[in-house]
Design a protein around this nucleic acid. Sequence first.
DNA 1: CCGCCCAATGAAAACCTTTACATAAGTCGA
DNA 2: TCGACTTATGTAAAGGTTTTCATTGGGCGG
Lengths: 341, 341
Amino acid sequence: MHNHPKKPATIEDVARLAEVSIATVSRAISKPEKVAESTRKKVNAAIARTGYTANAMAQNLRRQRSHMVLVLAESISDPNFPGILTGLEKVANARGYGVLIGNTDGDVALEEKYLRFLSAGTADGLILLTGHLPVAGWPEQSKTLIPPAVAAATPVQHDNISYVCTDDRAAARIATEYLMSLGHKRIVYVAGPKGNVLSERRLQGYCDALSQASEPMSIWKIDGDGTSLGGRAAVERLFIRDTLPTAFFCFNDNTAIGVIGALQDRGYDVPDDMSVVGFDDIPFASNITPGLTTIRQPRSQIGEYAMTALLDRLAQPNAPTEGKELHGDLIVRSSCSVPKA
Amino acid sequence: MHNHPKKPATIEDVARLAEVSIATVSRAISKPEKVAESTRKKVNAAIARTGYTANAMAQNLRRQRSHMVLVLAESISDPNFPGILTGLEKVANARGYGVLIGNTDGDVALEEKYLRFLSAGTADGLILLTGHLPVAGWPEQSKTLIPPAVAAATPVQHDNISYVCTDDRAAARIATEYLMSLGHKRIVYVAGPKGNVLSERRLQGYCDALSQASEPMSIWKIDGDGTSLGGRAAVERLFIRDTLPTAFFCFNDNTAIGVIGALQDRGYDVPDDMSVVGFDDIPFASNITPGLTTIRQPRSQIGEYAMTALLDRLAQPNAPTEGKELHGDLIVRSSCSVPKA
DNA sequence: CCGCCCAATGAAAACCTTTACATAAGTCGA
DNA sequence: TCGACTTATGTAAAGGTTTTCATTGGGCGG
């Protein structure tokens, strides 16, 4: 425990102190069974005395592995992000990997900059939270040029990329069926941003449910943008019409919160006058009045699965890719009731 | 653009193609002015042809710098986290650094595990979002043994650690004065978790304001825990008393949301019957009813400052440490009004 | 007692850069 | 024309591991 505030100890220092070669020290650490008991003890003593920690950069260089994973996200502030990240981080940590954050803000240049982490070897693999293939070029290039990647939360179509996300279609169907079971006949789907894959998937589930109705129900979709302001705007536009829905199924909780706010402002009571269902179960869904009935996305689980898939892939580069869709539960709170008369 | 799906190109490949030495290639990249125009062109052509990207691990090893910063957080899900991280990430990226996330969950063992990133050289510096010195030992050890670190969001007392956070005391004072200016005489402070430094700082600001009152006002503090449930519980306890406050100043927005919820459940109107002020201005503060009046923490700015301080420190290891407190604005929404009668 | 095999260890190469130092070819002033 | 500088480039060391291959010595079957 001598305090040498000098340079950190290297494997050579340890070797010298233990009177063995550096190769033996290396082995004593990584494959203890390969070295004699007595030697191992000497080495461990020397390690303790020097306070030696293997230099990760040298290890990385030699092993050609950085043990880092790059997580590319469009927005760190997305309410789903922390939960997913928690899951990602948890298994990465457990398996000796570090998690590197890349916030792209939708900026392609930034995205490209981050991808250089991969070609430079700073990161071994990629978790895509962006919902799209990383920039140009990739799709055309040969399979092998694509770094190991897994898409999480939003599916991505590519032969060489696994994905894990919520089974939006099934979940949306469940949500819609719930409204139908309460007796609602006019249910509107408040969509997400134009062209958003998740919004399309949820729309399908909504349609699935409608198509099973005993008496025909018509598909009714209005635009939103995934924000609460978008939800408000959607409601405003609705009031120009002569007929109103009795229930709203919203692309996400943010939208639902906007919808509820706008309805309340108009003097409608939720759920007495109108029912609203969201999607995500963001932390605040339970904190608004009324408590929001919504679909819970298994965020942390999505993260865990995605990281597991990626790390497995790194260990087994030729393993086949797969798409995994996790079940999303309906969380019933108090934003829905039977339709008024 | 020949597609060699083989190994990535090394500096040697480039050198061979450009018919120069690897040293020249290295210089052509990092100090272009040191190499003749003609050579530079040849090198650049060769780089383009090979698709060369310098191997970061080799660079790191040689330069003894990983260009990574470890961000240690107690909980990724804290509503303040994304904003701070955004700021951190932004300047790190701009200055060529990567951001590594470590989620400790308050687990000391995990924290220690992450700190090994520093001793192993995986990260050059540390951003502390945990509010405390990293685990045991450090405080006693000599200055130089502490890796470059900056505390963000929660101040940390250590000679060798800079910190940047909101000026809680001043902000809390402003919030309290605002309530006083509306005419409130009985203002209660709903505290955060026991022993929380930030809660203490905000309490001080609250006291500062009270002590300036024209007619003496008494300090009234009740316990909370920083969650909305804690806020609810605090209100419940209050109702056992015979006298009630007319306004609540809460440790944070979560608490405030709980307080408002509990008051509403009891049949009180906010702000007509009771006023409530929060702290943080989390994204949902504007989405609840009534819109929450609160102090906005300059989250992103805190992150930017903290990262700047850390990176400056890495470049200038002997620069003095400093504590920086940023101004927090009062955001007036609709959770406050003049006291009844 | 001999040869074979195994276990334990060491020497050295490889991983890929950056950079201090050496060298070669000019430039320029005297 | 020569030496002193300058500029452009090359050589080789250094950075700290891991791992292959070679070496040594001992155990053991024949």
